[in-house]
Computed example of a mutant assay.
Amino acid sequence: MPISFDTSGLQQQDANRWVNPATRDMVSVQYFDLAPDLPAALEDLDTLRQRLAQHRADTGCLIEAFVVGVDGQPALLRMEKMPLPDQPTGLIFAASLVVPKQQCSATLTLLCPEAGPTGMREAMLAAQIGFQNMYPPHPYAPGLQGKLPYNAADDIRWDAQFPEHPLTRARQWIARTVPGMRLDPGFAALPPFRG
């Protein structure tokens, strides 16, 4: 695999998947031997964000997207939410990191599902900031109406108030893991993605 990372606290399920036994959070690494399907170049972040938000609207919601460095290479970091599959309520929060190259890409995806009572972060914040303030326009596509709305509770400023929430866990794990991630030198040397 082109990406390696610290797997401390995770149980390996197979060659490309790990699970945190305490939270059921799952990490996977994949390599795709085809040109990345990103809708814009990493250098055109505004367009990339808008198109990613529109694309994700059919199945969930793009919360945020950034270009970050992974072992000296540019990568796209996305935070998204989707309904839990086969469940009447609840969400799964995903942090995905794509290191795109001209003709291939490597990805690391962290999936953090809600467990127990769902919607507590949203309910507590609605009481705190007012329900009328819970659904601002999407920051990347203001008129967007998708399967899941952009929610004020998705904002990173609330993470400290909800340290066990799956969105908080996803952000914290990515923040701890990305600085130590390494890329295979052969993969890192491939021609860069231009969009």
Rank of each mutant, 00 (worst) to 15 (best):
M1L: 08
D6I: 00
S8P: 00
L10Q: 12
Q11M: 13
Q13D: 13
D14T: 10
A15C: 08
R17M: 03
N20V: 08
T23G: 08
R24W: 09
V27K: 04
S28T: 05
S28P: 02
P39A: 09
L42M: 11
L42N: 05
E43S: 15
D44Q: 15
L48C: 08
R51W: 02
L52M: 11
R56C: 11
D58Q: 12
D58L: 04
T59H: 10
I63H: 09
E64I: 00
E64N: 11
F66K: 03
V68E: 04
G72V: 15
P74A: 13
P74S: 14
P74W: 12
A75L: 01
L76T: 01
M79P: 06
F93T: 06
V98C: 01
P100C: 10
K101L: 07
Q103W: 11
S105N: 12
L108W: 09
P113E: 03
E114Q: 06
T118H: 10
M120A: 14
M124Q: 15
A126V: 00
Q128G: 00
F131M: 06
P136F: 09
A141L: 06
G143M: 04
G146L: 02
G146K: 04
K147W: 04
Y150N: 02
Y150M: 01
D154F: 10
D155R: 13
R157F: 07
W158C: 08
F162L: 14
H165W: 05
A170L: 03
W173I: 12
W173S: 09
T177C: 01
R182I: 02
P185H: 01
G186S: 07
F187E: 05
A188E: 11
P191A: 10
F193W: 14
